[in-house]
């Protein structure tokens, strides 16, 4: 079973996202900021990452840049999932190596559609 790492500092968001992603038949791991997520990726690279932007310790965009520079770090499909909804933020995320971008609030149909777009389904 493919793994999806959900990175968000809100337990509520992680739990809502977990429910949806598990229904899409992924095994879910969680991290509450970018640094914890990097440690997870070093131990085992997931197939998918659902990534918040604003988090303590290390934010989503810094995590993504470090991930893409890591050995094997270009493999996971990374989907930003954030309240940041200005076009220049979406551009910044894509340029840093995000595969797709979700603006909160989200629902199952949005997550499913983004997973399908990046070839995860």
């Amino acid at each position: 079973m493919a793994t999806c790492l959900i990175v968000d500092d809100s337990r509520t968001v992680r739990s809502a996202a977990r429910r949806i992603v598990e229904e899409l038949s992924f095994e879910v791991e969680e991290a509450e900021h970018g640094a914890a997520a990097l440690a997870r990726c070093e131990a085992r690279m997931p197939e998918a990452i659902l990534l918040d932007w604003n988090m303590p310790v290390m934010n989503g965009i810094d995590f993504l840049r470090r991930l893409r520079a890591m050995s094997g770090g270009t493999q996971p499909r990374v989907i930003f999932c954030t309240t940041e909804s200005e076009i220049d933020r979406v551009v910044e995320a894509l340029e840093a190596g995000a595969d797709e971008y979700v603006m909160k609030p989200f629902d199952r149909s949005i997550i499913e559609s983004k997973f399908a777009q990046v070839g995860l389904l």
């Binding site: 076009i87 979406v90 995320a93 894509l94 995000a98 797709e100 971008y101 979700v102 603006m103 989200f106 149909s109 949005i110 559609s113 983004k114 777009q117």
Partner: peptide, 9 residues
Amino acid sequence: QRGLPAKYL
């Protein structure tokens, strides 16, 4: 957000 790739947005 349903089906539209971010690059097209």
